[in-house]
Design a protein around this nucleic acid. Structure first.
Lengths: 318, 318
DNA sequence: GTAGTTATGCTCAAGTTGAGCTTAAGTAGC
DNA sequence: GCTACTTAAGCTCAACTTGAGCATAACTAC
């Protein structure tokens, strides 16, 4: 018997952020859809996944990844890349997808490539709660998902509770890390263009553009995984600093944390906890670019890692 | 050109614990070495990794996994399974290893299979700090690793600091989650039988049995990953209860947490924080099996998950 | 000079943590 | 039945952390 061959795809979520938004490095595809930098793992050429991934990212975007970590390996049948997308994949191969997360302090110039730094909220408009809970949830998402739960027969109760917990309905708190659960619900309920595409079924209801722009293959799922992981990790490891320039003001830092979490933070308490953490030091230099009183510039104290202060920044909601 | 084929191995760390020790479900191999339940992912037969994994575990140990989560996917060249181990792997295939973690409340009877529940400290004797820091660290591990760091030429400084941070030398705190880092150092320094086997080199110094029993393939690495992940997760998700029977005393619960963490906890403060968490309820029933005053029996309040109390148990060191 | 904007400092009550002490309620040995 | 031992469970207290708001300082723009 000829066994089905396996192909491994490597995809990268490269994140940058500024005071305005969080960005992911994306590539443009023929049909106008966005995708993540990705490519096929070459078992004879790549010694490790990470090296393979770095090659692909460099080739497709000109970007040289720094900090990188593995996210998750997806192997479910039916959600892989359509054949054409993955160059050289043997026909009929089973496709497996390994996702990686990378962080970078600056949106490097990638204009020579067909790549763009994109605000990730274009793909997940329901994730940005910095200006309060988006109306979209109450107006479009909740009704659609509750209808889907209702139509679930024996699974109705489970579905209902998944929806409530994920989207913070019915007095449940909004837990920002549950990004993947939220996307998966929208996907399962057939509200994402991707679910229609993957199943080959006709959409029950035209998936609304309001539910976020789709991405090729399972890239929106990988992006959701990355966002969730980063939102969690920022709290217990000092990874935010991978997103900051050498010198920054405390407000800069707060804005970056807020854009990643999609939540507003309490300014004074955020500063106080940073102070206590010992993660940053003032440089005695000031910047006048604030529009108000000049702010002191700080830098990350890498030495803090040595002192066991290996935890992240606190995120007091404000 | 004939591309190198890829084979995917699935391995499971199935964990149980009681008041005495934490256990992993293992299989026995020809050479007397232990391994994890594992097998090859079948791209034409398995719809998802998880289903494939469950098949293999059931076949090899008779155990039916409940809660399961993906840990990590290892793809580095040079640390894969020796060919013979992985039934049916095409010769010359590149082997990739996906590790899973499962939890169970009872050590089910597996005597009909060639499987054993093993105290994981047999593979990681330096990880058990319930009776204080094991002498092994100061007597054998630290000297060997410091010598290795010293011999590192340009990398000496990095190595030294990795060793200090991982093993809590030189006033650094012992961070129980860093299980994988510790194992990787021992492996890299050539102190594990596995490193000798994988490299084909002669050992610099016979790897001492005191440095833990080896396992087949990269299974000790997967086990280390599982321990580290579980130690972290227990603190922020109520996963311990997956390891507990329906009814238990607070001391039972504390002993289980202690065996997983490899640390002693402060009894009163542990109880107080549990109390506040709302994760458990007293049943008004008492057990006399304590050897002292009878203890109340408690159960996990699954409803607590609904109330946003989705966090784990606190672990006040005692 | 006035209004607007942002930085940074101070305070206070409420809650949490670390650590220890005390009393209760059993068992085992004599 | 008394004593020693063991574990459960309740109480206390100081130190610290958190959430929240108010006050003052130092700039820019008009």
């Amino acid at each position: 018997m000829t066994a089905t061959p396996i192909a491994v795809g490597l995809s990268a979520v490269i994140v940058a952020a500024d005071g305005k938004a969080p960005y992911a490095l994306t590539t443009r595809h023929a049909d106008g859809m966005a995708g993540l930098p990705h490519g096929r793992f070459d078992p004879s050429g790549h010694r490790t996944f990470e090296l393979g991934l770095r090659d692909w990212v460099r080739a497709q975007t000109g970007f040289e990844p720094g900090y990188v970590e593995q996210l998750y390996t997806f192997g479910d049948l039916g959600r892989e890349l359509p054949q054409a997308e993955l160059n050289d994949a043997p026909t009929g191969a089973r496709l497996i997808s390994v996702g990686y997360l990378g962080l970078t302090p600056e949106r490097t110039d990638i204009s020579a490539f067909d790549a763009v730094w994109r605000d990730w909220h274009r793909h997940f408009p329901w994730e940005d709660h910095r200006q309060g809970r988006p109306a979209l949830i109450a107006e479009a998402i909740a009704p659609a998902l509750l209808a889907w739960a209702d139509a679930g027969g024996k699974q109705s109760a489970t579905r209902l509770s998944r929806v409530q917990l994920a989207f913070g309905l019915d007095d449940q708190p909004w837990i920002e890390e549950r990004t993947l659960e939220r996307y998966e619900l929208i996907y399962e309920a057939g509200l994402a263009p991707e679910s229609v595409r993957d199943s080959g079924r006709k959409p029950v209801k035209a998936p609304s553009a309001a539910l976020g722009e789709p991405m090729i293959s399972d890239h929106r799922r990988i992006l959701a995984t990355a966002i969730g992981r980063l939102r969690g990790k920022i709290k217990y490891r000092p990874v935010v600093f991978e997103l900051m320039p050498e010198r920054f003001t405390l407000l800069d830092l707060q804005k970056v944390v807020e854009s990643i979490l999609g939540l507003p933070l309490h300014k004074q308490n955020f500063r106080r906890s940073l102070d206590r953490s010992g993660l940053v030091v003032g440089l005695g230099q000031f910047t006048q670019a604030t529009g108000g009183r000049p702010a002191e510039l700080f830098r990350f104290r890498r030495e803090a890692l040595r002192e066991g202060h290996a935890s992240g920044v606190q995120t007091p909601r404000g």
